[in-house]
Simulated assay, not measured.
Amino acid sequence: MDSHEVVKNIYLLVIVTLLSVLQNGENIQEGASVTNNNHVCVSSSRNCMDAYPTFLAVMWCAGVCLNQAPAAFAGIIYLLVRQKYFIGYLGHTSQCTPGYLFGKRIISFLSLMCIVGIFNYLLLRFYGSDYKEYVQTITGAASALLLIP
């Protein structure tokens, strides 16, 4: 497999990862500039940073093992939700709860994609049955359901 083929299979994941890096820098600067609720902002930034490695791991696993398009789409939605979560902490803390729960749902979806992708690989490896095309169609359609609040 040449380098162009590798990049073709992961470029959407790379774009979402770079956007998430930019978002991290922005959120850290915003949290540092607010003085009246420093504890709340630091706490919010810390919550975002604690979930960040999990998000990256499951997004990349889902994208590589199954399908990069729905994984990247879920990643973009997660970044938007994460921004809403952070902004909710800057205002009223009750505004951050929907973002937090929605983010957990997206990470669960990506985790499920990882499990299905690995399970499909094991089926192919040991039984010669490849259901990847069917599963990709289902996950592509299911990723649109992430937009439902």
Rank of each mutant, 00 (worst) to 15 (best):
F109N: 08
Y100T: 00
Y100F: 09
Y78N: 13
R105A: 07
I106K: 01
K84I: 13
I107P: 00
L112I: 15
I77F: 15
Y100N: 06
L79T: 05
P70E: 15
R82G: 00
G99P: 03
K104C: 01
H92D: 13
L79E: 09
G75C: 13
Q68P: 01
L112P: 00
V81Y: 13
I106N: 01
R82Y: 03
V116R: 04
A74D: 13
L80K: 10
Q68L: 09
I87L: 14
L110C: 03
H92F: 02
I76F: 15
G75S: 11
M113G: 15
I107D: 04
M113P: 04
V81G: 13
F73R: 14
A71Y: 12
Y78E: 11
T97R: 05
M113W: 02
T93N: 05
M113T: 03
G103V: 03
L110Q: 10
V81I: 12
K84V: 09
L90I: 05
L80P: 00
Q83Y: 08
S108M: 10
C96N: 03
L110E: 08
L90K: 13
I76L: 12
S94D: 13
L79K: 08
Y85D: 04
A74K: 14
S111C: 08
F102H: 04
V116I: 14
F73T: 12
Q83M: 08
